[in-house]
């Protein structure tokens, strides 16, 4: 069983909804990322999504675009991101780490080389925004052989055929994009999200995380009522951006923010447990 599957199985047994924070690796600098990852785990993160910076992040809103630009300003490379994961693993062997990014840096490294290096570094999963199942056959095979889960996005525009197609290749969990738009955009329509999650669950036997548009403890608590995992990105990255001049304060501040999200999610979980 992969580290991601084991983590979700354990959470399900405990009636706990996962909290998955997203941060961009190397934002605002390489030295901040690993302490930040540990602080997020201490504050209640169950899995971590680590963004691989890319020059042309076409699915990201301005907040995460700027995080990519900050990380690229000092040349954070995919191999540096893998090195950060290796450092994180030295002190945390349990928390799954999922890389999230775009295909070209992976393609540039070479699929086989990437699969091997990512596995050796302790990466558990990868989500490539611009690599749908139709275009990622070879990559899927190599990552499976390396024991790495391939996490896919599902969107409000995904019909049953596509949900099935993605269910056939996805492993670990699937990520439902709750709004039409880029990261950090829009507002959630919880009824729509709930209806779509029901359709997804009928067709895919994996845990379902929900992200895009979760800005605060209130929405995190609401989404926890329907999802297996609550994924928060721009709200965290925006707080990192406000502290780029004082990077030593970032782990503490993000830990505090996540603790608030965690408390709201726990309250939802407790209420569900009482029903």
């Amino acid at each position: 069983m992969s580290r991601i599957a084991a983590r979700f199985a354990d959470l399900a047994a405990r009636g706990r909804t996962a909290l998955i924070p997203f941060v961009t690796a190397g934002d605002p600098d390489l030295a901040t990322t690993v302490p930040l990852m540990h602080a997020m785990v201490a504050a209640g993160a169950d899995l971590i999504e680590l963004g691989v910076p890319f020059s042309d992040p076409m699915a990201d809103g301005p907040v995460i675009q700027r995080a990519s630009e900050r990380a690229l300003a000092h040349h954070t490379r995919l191999r540096d991101v893998l090195d950060l994961v290796r450092q994180f693993r030295a002190r945390d062997a349990a928390t799954p780490v999922i890389l999230m990014g775009y295909l070209n840096p992976v393609e540039s490294m070479g699929y086989a080389g990437f699969a091997e290096a990512a596995s050796a570094a302790g990466v558990d999963g990868i989500l490539l925004v611009d690599a749908p199942p139709e275009e990622s056959g070879e990559l899927v095979t190599l990552l499976r052989q390396a024991g790495i889960d391939l996490v896919y996005l599902l969107a409000p525009t995904s019909d049953e055929d596509r949900i099935r197609k993605i269910g056939a290749v996805a492993s670990g969990f699937v990520y439902y994009v709750a709004v039409k738009g880029v990261t950090g955009a829009g507002h959630l329509d919880l009824a729509d999200v709930n209806a779509k999650l029901t359709a997804i669950r009928r067709l895919i036997p994996l845990p379902v995380g929900v992200g895009f548009g979760i800005k605060d403890a209130e929405t995190a608590g609401q989404v926890a009522a329907m999802a297996d995992a609550v994924i928060v990105g721009s709200a965290i990255v925006g707080r990192i951006e406000a502290l780029t001049m004082k990077p030593e304060h970032i782990p503490g501040a993000i830990g505090d923010f996540l603790a608030g999200l965690r408390a709201a999610i726990d309250a939802t979980d407790r209420a569900r447990g009482l029903k």
């Binding site: 295909l103 611009d130 749908p132 969107a155 525009t157 994009v177």
Partner: peptide
Amino acid sequence: ARGHFGPYGGLFVPETLMRP
């Protein structure tokens, strides 16, 4: 049929755009 010119072309987009 899937938009490839030899090894080039294709459909490398976020999921939201696949159906449109």
